[in-house]
């Protein structure tokens, strides 16, 4: 019995966003990374080809964090003390993009120095996050943005309260922004509207709908992403942006990943479980439409990369 495969023909598609600029493009990256361009729900190649596959970013900090899980410390070792070394190792571990997370302890000079050192240590495109406080973010990100003019860095994290300064400096220096809203379709759209109302081209915005880790609200992030992607395909211009999510950050603060002792026996082997936790969180998000997943453990990077390869192989 011949079955006719039902195919959705969507009126909308996702904007292609390019991160990082090569020397030909006015920057110093050895290659730039493009995400987006989909015209179907994730990996339904029989409906529409997928011009860009999802990519993996590895998060490093501007100074060695004292609250990361021993499993992560074991994986990255001594490099954690030196962002440039850490970035290099992340590059080797298979990162497509490096996320440099600045901290409250950084001065503007520190921030610029760290970002520049990472830029020279690796040819990968960069995402730079402020420490997450409005004033401090502005204080650090503006000089970083100016010092890296033309590199097409992604500056983050813009939220509804602090977007103006970050967007303004990103626009002035040819960078991109990461726009984060707390797991709500409408809030995502609203922030995208506010940012593009400032004159920022949509090709330079990544939306971050926020996710929860497995067991900690992943289902909300998962559905919000599916809904944003559906809305985009249905033609809603304000949701036609690639999505970035941070399963590494979310999972490594859960006790399932972070802690090895004093946990229920039913949780099984710590290391395997911890990496499963990050990997499975990331996979669920990749299935729901993530274009960039920011991870922390090299083993998870390897596994998620492998899964993406299988998903994009037609």
């Amino acid at each position: 019995m011949p079955i006719e495969i039902p195919k959705d023909k969507w009126p909308g598609s996702i904007k292609i966003v390019t991160i990082g600029a090569t020397s030909a493009e006015g920057g110093t990256r050895t290659k730039s990374i493009s995400v987006g361009g989909q015209a179907s729900m994730p990996y339904l190649h029989y409906e529409a080809p997928m011009p860009n596959k999802p990519v993996i970013a590895i998060e490093i900090k501007s100074r060695k964090p004292d609250d990361w899980s021993p499993l992560l410390v074991e994986a990255w070792g001594e490099t954690m003390a030196e962002p440039a070394q850490w970035a290099k190792k992340a590059d080797e571990a298979g990162a497509d993009i490096i996320v440099v997370a600045l901290t409250l302890a950084d001065s503007p000079e520190d921030a610029v120095r760290v970002v520049k050192s990472v830029l020279s240590a690796t040819g990968l495109p960069l995402i730079v996050w402020g420490p997450g406080q409005v004033e401090k973010d502005n204080e650090l990100l503006v000089p970083v943005s100016e010092a890296t003019n033309g590199e097409k860095i992604v500056l983050g994290i813009c939220e509804d309260k602090n977007y103006r300064t970050i967007v303004a400096t990103a626009m002035a220096n040819g960078h991109l922004v990461q726009a984060r809203t707390p797991m709500d379709v409408n809030l995502s759209k609203q922030l995208n509207i506010l940012i593009s109302d400032m004159g920022m081209p949509k090709e330079r915005i990544l939306m971050d709908p926020t996710t929860g880790a497995l067991g900690y609200g992943i289902e909300y992030g998962y559905s919000v992403m599916e809904r944003l992607r559906l809305a985009a395909l249905q033609g809603d211009a304000m949701t036609q942006l690639p999505m970035i999510v941070t399963p590494g950050y979310e999972t490594w603060k859960t006790k399932e990943s972070k802690i090895g002792e004093g946990v229920p026996e039913g949780w099984g082997d710590w290391k395997a479980r911890a990496i499963n936790w990050e990997t499975l969180t990331a996979i669920a998000l990749v299935e729901s439409g993530a274009d960039i997943v920011v991870l922390r453990h090299p083993e998870s990077v390897k596994r998620v990369k492998g899964a993406i390869e299988e998903l994009v192989t037609v």
């Binding site: 709500d184 379709v185 409408n186 809030l187 759209k189 609203q190 509207i193 809603d236 304000m238």
Partner: peptide, 14 residues
């Protein structure tokens, strides 16, 4: 959902 969507001028869905 409808409320947060309408909590914008004039509406999130232009």
């Amino acid at each position: 959902e409808a409320f947060t969507s309408a909590l914008f001028l004039p509406h999130t869905d232009m």
